[in-house]
Amino acid sequence: MPLDPKDPPRQLGGELVIPVLAVAFTLYYFSSIWNSPWTAQVSAFMVGGILLLVCAMFFLRAILWLSRGQASLGVGNLFSIEDLRTGRIGLIATTVAFCVFIDQLGFTLTTFLFLALSMIILSKGKSPLLIVAISAVMALGGWAVFIWAFDTRFPRGWFEGVMQAVIANG
């Protein structure tokens, strides 16, 4: 696919992430089946082989474009200052934190903190009361459905403990 020379150079750095991940994963996968029976290998070698091939073609195309100056190794389409400004980095961070802390703090409290914190980050601190109220309603609703009604094995923390005691005695 020839690029229009008038366009600014295509930023290939970000585009290379997925193929690099794909190659790394495929090689790891191959290593895990190297000594396995044929049934484990046949389909994976076929699919993985094609994947490696298309990735190689992509890399070749990238090298060609880079050498012609039609593309750069920039990662502007993956990260930009905009991501910090819009709070996207913050949202990704709170999402990771949600998964990390839910085990210790329990489902309800973590959900509340996650919702409140990420909404405050995204709204840049506007209408915190509304946000806290929404978060509380959502977290309690989640508690009512998933823990109280459906009794799922969601991580429990002190809030769930207290509520259990309250319900048992009340």
């Binding site: 029976p37 049934t39 484990a40 699919v47 993985g48 994947l51």
Partner: peptide, 23 residues
């Protein structure tokens, strides 16, 4: 690349015949 990466991710797990764990 996207499609075959998906197929490769879909191949994670034991093989259906001899249950060899893979990837």
């Amino acid at each position: 690349i996207a499609g075959f990466l998906g197929l490769m991710i879909g191949s994670i797990g034991t093989d259906v015949v001899y249950a060899t764990p893979r990837g």
